[in-house]
């Protein structure tokens, strides 16, 4: 083993996974809720596609990372 070998650790400390999972999923679900409220309440003609896409993207980023950290926190190391 070379002398210069440096240990590699995870990009985010393991201990943060549960907290991150809870907060990111919470934010993600709130944004998802706002997305569906917007879908259900605003009439078809006056719905803005950009707004829908932006809300969807934000929600999916939060839900995606949230579920990743949920998997990691529960021991499924992807």
């Amino acid at each position: 083993m070379a002398q210069s070998a440096k240990p590699i650790s995870s990009p985010v400390p393991d201990a943060w996974y549960p907290t991150l999972a809870v907060f990111m999923l919470a934010i993600g679900l709130v944004v998802t809720a706002s997305f569906f409220i917007y879908e259900a309440t605003s009439p078809r003609k006056y719905r803005s596609l950009a707004k829908e896409l932006v809300t969807g993207t934000v929600a999916s980023v939060f839900l995606g990372f949230g579920s990743l950290f949920l998997l990691l926190a529960s021991g499924v190391y992807v």
Partner: peptide, 10 residues
């Protein structure tokens, strides 16, 4: 995961 959720929204 993100693209999975995104496709759901789309």
């Amino acid at each position: 995961l993100i693209s999975g959720f995104f496709f759901l929204f789309v």
